[in-house]
Measured scan of single mutants.
Amino acid sequence: QRITLKDYAMRFGQTKTAKDLGVYQSAINKAIHAGRKIFLTINADGSVYAEEVKDGEVKPFPS
């Protein structure tokens, strides 16, 4: 399943989102408010992988 960072954070909370991605909650808040195009893939085992689309390139998040 693929979902935006904002939607994932709204569904699970910023604290869990940060923990799942290995970053601080403040980084999640800042990324959402900056309007960054970050998409999360939720794997069947429950693990989460995030990618950011920037300038036409897709890069892992966090980099």
Rank of each mutant, 00 (worst) to 15 (best):
S26Q: 10
I32Q: 02
K6E: 14
Y49M: 10
A31S: 05
E51Y: 10
K19A: 13
S63C: 11
V53S: 08
G46V: 02
T4Q: 07
F61R: 02
M10K: 13
Q25I: 15
A44N: 11
A50G: 12
A18W: 03
E57R: 12
R2G: 07
I38C: 01
Q1D: 12
D45I: 04
G22T: 04
F39W: 14
H33F: 12
S47M: 07
R11K: 14
T41H: 08
L40R: 00
A18L: 02
V53Q: 09
E52Y: 04
D55Q: 08
S63G: 12
K6V: 12
Q25F: 09
Q14W: 14
F61S: 02
V53R: 06
M10Y: 10
K30R: 14
I32L: 13
V23C: 09
G56V: 04
G35P: 03
Q14I: 15
K37M: 13
I38A: 00
V53F: 13
A34M: 12
Q25T: 14
R11C: 09
V58F: 10
Q1Y: 13
Q1C: 14
K59F: 14
S63E: 12
A44H: 09
F12Y: 13
A31I: 07
V23F: 04
Q25Y: 10
P62I: 05
L21I: 08
V23Q: 03
A44L: 11
G13H: 01
Q14F: 15
K54S: 13
E52Q: 04
D45Q: 06
K19Y: 10
T4S: 14
Y49W: 14
D20R: 06
A50R: 01
D55G: 11
S26M: 10
G35Y: 05
M10G: 10
P60Y: 05
S47P: 03
T15C: 14
V23G: 03
R36H: 06
Y24M: 14
T15N: 12
L5W: 01
T15M: 14
R36L: 11
K16A: 07
Y24N: 15
G13V: 01
I42W: 07
S47L: 07
L21Q: 00
D7L: 07
S63P: 11
L40D: 00
Q14G: 09
A18H: 02
I32E: 02
V23A: 06
R11L: 14
L5M: 04
S63D: 14
L40I: 15
K54E: 13
S47H: 08
I3W: 15
G13E: 01
D7K: 06
D20T: 07
D45G: 05
T4R: 07
D20H: 06
D20Q: 10
D20N: 06
R2D: 03
F12A: 03
K59N: 09
T4C: 07
Q14H: 13
S63N: 14
Y8N: 00
E57A: 11
I28F: 03
L21R: 00
T41C: 09
K6F: 12
V48P: 02
T4G: 09
H33W: 12
A31Q: 02
Y8I: 01
S47D: 07
G13F: 01
Y49A: 08
S26D: 10
Q1E: 15
I38W: 01
Y49S: 12
K6D: 07
T4I: 04
V53M: 12
M10N: 13
A44K: 10
T15D: 14
M10Q: 13
G46K: 06
R2L: 10
G35A: 09
K30D: 15
K6W: 09
K30Q: 15
I38D: 00
K37E: 10
F39L: 06
T41W: 12
A9G: 03
P62S: 04
Y24Q: 15
T17H: 01
G56E: 07
Q14L: 15
M10T: 11
R11G: 04
S47F: 10
K54I: 15
Q25M: 09
F12N: 06
G22W: 04
S26Y: 11
K6I: 10
H33D: 13
T17E: 01
K30V: 10
A44D: 12
G13K: 01
Y24H: 15
V23P: 02
A18F: 02
P60H: 06
D55P: 06
D20A: 10
A27W: 12
I3S: 05
T17S: 04
K19W: 09
Y24P: 15
D20S: 06
T41P: 00
S47G: 08
N29Y: 15
I38T: 00
I28K: 00
R11N: 07
A18Y: 02
A31E: 02
A9L: 13
D45C: 05
K30Y: 11
S63I: 09
E57T: 12
K19F: 09
G22P: 00
S63M: 12
H33M: 15
K30T: 13
F12T: 02
I42T: 06
G35T: 05
F12H: 10
K59G: 11
N29R: 14
A34R: 09
K30F: 09
P62M: 04
A9W: 08
K37F: 10
A9S: 08
G46S: 06
E51N: 07
Y49F: 13
K16N: 05
I28G: 00
E57K: 13
A18Q: 03
L40E: 00
S26E: 11
Q1R: 08
A9C: 13
I38Y: 01
Q25W: 13
L5P: 00
I28T: 01
I42E: 04
Q14D: 10
A18I: 02
F61T: 02
A27R: 07
N43P: 04
K19Q: 13
K16D: 03
T15H: 14
S26R: 10
G22I: 03
I32K: 01
I28R: 00
G35L: 07
V48R: 03
E57V: 15
F12L: 04
G35S: 08
K30M: 12
K16M: 04
S63Y: 12
A18E: 03
F39D: 03
F12I: 03
E51C: 10
T41D: 04
S47Y: 07
S63H: 11
I42L: 10
A18R: 02
A44P: 14
V48G: 01
I42H: 04
A27D: 15
G13P: 01
A31M: 12
D20M: 11
K19V: 10
A50C: 04
L5N: 00
E51I: 11
R2W: 15
F39Y: 13
A31H: 03
S26V: 10
N29P: 07
V58T: 13
P60F: 06
A9P: 00
R11I: 14
D7H: 06
E52K: 01
Y8R: 00
A9D: 02
G46L: 07
R36K: 06
Q25V: 15
E51S: 07
P60E: 06
K16Y: 02
V23K: 02
K16G: 03
L5Q: 00
F39P: 00
D7N: 07
T41Q: 08
D45W: 05
E57Y: 12
K59D: 04
G46T: 04
D55A: 09
F39R: 03
R11E: 09
K59V: 15
N29D: 13
V58L: 10
H33G: 10
Q1W: 07
A44F: 09
E57D: 11
P62L: 05
G35C: 08
N43F: 11
Q14A: 15
A34C: 11
G22S: 06
S26G: 11
F12Q: 03
N43A: 11
I3C: 09
E57F: 12
A27T: 15
Y8K: 00
R36N: 05
N43V: 08
R2F: 08
N43Y: 10
D20Y: 04
K16C: 04
P62K: 04
Q1A: 11
M10F: 10
A34Y: 09
F39T: 07
S26C: 15
I42S: 04
E51R: 06
V48K: 03
Y49N: 09
Y49L: 09
T15K: 13
F12W: 12
I28C: 01
I28S: 00
K6R: 13
A50W: 03
E57S: 12
A44E: 13
G22N: 09
P62N: 05
K54Y: 12
K54F: 14
K16H: 04
H33N: 14
V23N: 02
G13M: 01
K54N: 12
K6Q: 13
L5I: 05
V58N: 08
T17V: 07
A34I: 08
D55R: 08
D20V: 11
L5Y: 01
Q14E: 15
R2M: 09
Y24R: 15
Y49G: 06
V53G: 04
D7V: 06
D7I: 05
Q1L: 13
A9Y: 11
G46Y: 05
N43D: 08
E52C: 04
G13I: 01
T15I: 13
Q1I: 14
V48S: 03
K59I: 15
L5T: 01
D7A: 09
R2P: 08
R36G: 04
K30H: 15
V53C: 11
R11P: 00
V48N: 01
D45E: 05
E51H: 09
T17G: 01
